[in-house]
Design a protein around this nucleic acid. Structure first.
Length: 794
DNA sequence: TCACTGGGGATTTTT
DNA sequence: TCCCCAGTGA
């Protein structure tokens, strides 16, 4: 029986009064007393140590989230700390959501209230900046640019400075700018460095222009949220003191992934009380390439000498064999906090290592094994296939279709990054922020209304001359245009003006969306398009509308912080709703929020995406040199250490059964390459392994020893095949998928599909009594390949 | 302005 | 192989 703690909530959950006016109630301790029975000694210590700096080194599967959430519940229930006084920051929305929900359930709070300060770093900053952005030059309605918007602006900066984008890749420059921002450097601080390389010099110039463009558009990129957040607190004592005082307790999850700016921000937030608890595992630091500083966690105890260190080393997730394997892999790394994971569980099954002739065989093997596991009663949601790069997922997808395995591929496309969604959102963004140049350019000729670059340039120039927001010079602008452009802009100006009115005076977010979808002509345009893709887009827009509707229904005016400036944001009407919705689109944009129906599906994802998850059965595929560890990591010195940590993360996702696979040859970028087994396989202790070597030289016309010269770097692991016919899978398919059934179809047959139209059969395969056709269609000139099962006709 | 074509490039991606 | 972009022609 769950004990009931609700009577213990001794104060309101939300209390925004200055700290002086609330008094800690004496520790009741009833929650802790009861809950700590479920904790081990180290976990209990980490929960109970509420005051002062605390570093929790939490190994994989050691119950870290449990400790964090219990800590919050303990503060609230036993110490009477209002939730508004606790700031808990995570990196991903996924982690924030999980922590939020678990705290809520510990508090036995079944209201619909959302706790505002269990959140991501970025969201916390957005909330600070919506209210205090004026201090650092931001209007309340500032836009948040996603990566493609950011790239567009970087390219703009290239053009503005008349630097050819052939000199350097805009992508590389953007990465450099981002890394400066992650280090907490504004353009001014970068320009001052002497003796810079030509690239750095150029990039710093572009940084200056890029930042100016952002400001002009009243927009921020992801990194800016942290940068400005830090600037705000650093330069404005009143704001800093207010929040230091508000947040008596600060918690940070996945601390090993913090970068410099996040760390700087964090230091601003910690008041004199120094009640800062960080949780992390240096062995799971896998975002170094995004600026994460593993030193933050390695040096934390030195930075805070009074810091208490708690190590959580008991693993509750995996079998002993799996942990042995994980320890062997990670043990090869030099830079780490020494710790040893241990478990009470049995050795469990051996880890299976399987070599296969090629990537197709690997996919077939894995999917077949999954079917077997499902047959043995393992739930589909308890099975995952992990890999280093997204590109290997394609062959799995094909195989799943062929073997009819319900699957879900995590990552890749995000709902809000689809063209049609971004198109409509652009209108909304402009209405919220009339300065938003990227939204303006995207929406003005979508759907096409004959407004080209010439007209756009004129409008932008006019806005610059008049020093007015872009969207406000539309009417005047039409006067300076002629012909098609003039008609188009007039139309656009009307749609915008009406929408702006709905934004300022209306109260329904759905109405606002419907207005732009209809009046812009976007939906009508789609309806006139007979293609399959247009249908898909229409559906996606419907889905968007449904999401907006749901959002609006569940939306509640946030508990506003009565800060030093009082409440500044209008929390009534449609404005605040749009702010919040667009924030979600920019920051929380992942699809799995929209459909959580993944219960019956096997999950395929990158190793990065798997962090924080666990599965009964885990496959790690493509364990080959050059893929995992990746080529890039192998070239750089400490790159391999991070790959090793990634491997450790992957291994520790498995609870009971771990299967590692590799292939002798693999199709990458169109050509087939010979692959060498990953060095990580060699690190595994033999006694926990079960080798299944199915690899054999399957294609006689490939060189097994010498062979052609390699086109990649060190030539040892990747050899180009000798010239000669590539063995066609079509010929082998009968063997591979057995059971000769008389087919209605053969290769080259013309077929008709209800939505795709005419297509050509590329491949016919058989599985049991079913027939799988791979058919290639051309839809609006684009190739579309579909694998589909057909019941064989007797 | 837009539709087509050919060349070049191609990790991981919490936000 | 496939996808994105820049350049070209109608």
């Amino acid at each position: 029986m769950e004990p009931n703690y609700s009577s213990l909530v001794s104060s309101e959950l939300f209390d925004w009064r200055p700290a002086a006016s609330y008094v800690l109630s004496a520790a009741v301790g009833a929650f802790f007393e009861e809950y700590s029975k479920q904790l081990n000694a180290a976990q209990a210590e980490a929960v109970a140590a509420t005051e002062g700096p605390l570093l929790i080194l939490a190994g994989a599967g050691s119950g870290k989230t449990r400790v964090l959430t219990a800590r919050i519940a303990h503060l609230v229930l036993d110490h009477g700390v209002p939730l508004s006084r606790i700031l808990a920051m995570t990196f991903s929305n996924k982690a924030a959501r999980e922590m939020h929900d678990r705290v809520k359930s510990l508090l036995q709070d079944d209201s619909t209230i959302r706790y505002p300060w269990i959140s991501t770093f970025h969201s916390v900053c957005v909330r600070l900046l919506r209210q205090y952005g004026g201090r650092v030059g931001l209007e309340t309605g500032f836009a948040i640019y996603d990566s493609s918007d950011q790239m567009a602006l970087v390219k703009d900066a290239f053009e503005l400075l008349k630097i050819s984008d052939k000199t350097y890749h805009p992508k590389a420059v953007h990465a450099q700018i981002s890394s400066w921002k992650n280090d907490g450097k504004f353009p001014a601080q970068v320009a001052s460095s002497s003796r810079a390389s030509h690239f750095v010099e150029t990039a710093s110039k572009i940084y200056v222009a890029y930042q100016a463009e952002l400001l002009k558009a009243q927009a921020v990129d992801f990194d800016d949220l942290l940068l400005y957040g830090h600037q705000l607190l650093n330069e404005h004592l009143d704001v800093r003191e207010y929040f230091q005082d508000l947040w008596k307790y600060v918690l940070v999850d996945e601390f090993q992934d913090t970068n410099r700016i996040q760390y700087m921000l964090l230091k601003q937030l910690i008041g004199p009380h120094q009640n800062i608890a960080v949780v992390g595992d240096d062995d799971q630091s896998i975002y170094g390439w995004r600026g994460a500083k593993i030193e933050n966690i390695l040096n934390f105890d030195r930075e805070y000498p009074a810091c208490r260190v708690v190590k959580l080393e008991q693993n509750y997730r995996s079998t002993a064999n799996i942990l042995k394997a994980a320890a062997a892999v990670i043990g090869k790394n030099e830079v780490r906090h020494e710790k040893t994971l241990w478990t009470d569980s049995d050795a469990g099954r051996k880890i299976r290592v399987v070599g296969l002739p090629d990537d197709r065989a690997e996919a077939k093997y894995i999917v077949t094994q999954i079917h077997k596991a499902l047959g043995e009663g393992v739930a589909a949601s308890e099975i995952a296939v992990l890999y280093r790069v997204n590109s290997v997922s394609r062959v799995f997808e094909e195989e799943c279709l062929r073997q009819r395995l319900p699957y879900k591929i995590v990552g890749g496309f995000r709902f809000y990054e689809r063209k049609e969604i971004k198109d409509i959102i652009a209108y909304l963004r402009l209405v919220m922020n009339p300065h938003d140049i990227i939204a303006f350019r995207r929406s003005i000729n979508t759907p096409t209304r004959g407004v080209g670059k010439v007209s756009v340039d004129k409008l932008e120039a006019l806005a610059a001359v008049q020093k007015k927001p872009l969207a406000e010079v539309l009417k005047e602008g039409t006067m300076q245009l002629s012909g098609k452009g003039r008609i188009g802009v007039t139309q656009y100006a009307e749609v915008y003006a009406e929408g702006r009115k709905l934004f300022l005076e209306g109260d329904s977010l759905v109405d606002l969306f419907v207005h732009f979808m209809d009046k812009s002509g976007y939906v009508a345009d789609l309806k006139n398009d007979p293609s399959f893709e247009a249908r898909e887009r229409e559906e996606n827009l419907q889905e968007l509308l449904a999401a907006v509707q749901e959002f609006e229904e569940q939306w509640q005016a946030p508990e506003e912080v009565v800060g030093v400036e009082g409440i500044k944001i209008d929390t009534s009407g449609v404005q605040r709703k749009l702010f919040d919705f667009l924030e979600r689109v920019a920051l929380v944009a992942d699809t799995d929020q929209l459909d959580q129906k993944s219960k019956e599906q096997v999950t395929f994802m990158t190793l990065h995406a798997s962090k924080g998850l666990e599965f009964q059965t885990c496959f790690i595929a493509a364990l080959e040199e050059g893929i995992f560890p990746s080529m890039r990591a192998m070239d750089s010195g400490d790159g391999v250490e991070e790959e090793r940590r990634l491997c450790y993360v992957g291994i520790t996702r498995a609870k009971e059964h771990l299967i590692l696979t590799r292939a002798d040859s693999r199709r990458t970028f169109g050509s087939i390459n010979m692959q060498m087994p990953s060095r990580f396989l060699r690190d595994l202790p033999a006694q926990v392994l079960e080798m299944v070597e199915e690899a054999k030289p399957s294609y006689p016309n490939y060189a097994s020893g010498g062979g052609g010269a390699s086109s990649w770097g060190n030539g040892y692991y990747a050899r180009k095949p000798k010239p000669g016919p590539i063995p066609a899978y079509e010929d082998e398919s009968q063997d591979l998928y057995s059971e000769d059934v008389d087919s209605e179809f053969k290769r080259g047959d013309k077929v008709k599909h209800p939505s795709f139209g005419d297509g050509v059969v590329k491949k016919v395969e058989h599985l049991g009594s079913d027939e799988c056709l791979t058919i290639e269609f051309r839809v609006k000139g684009k190739k579309k390949v579909l694998s589909q099962f057909v019941q064989a006709v007797e």
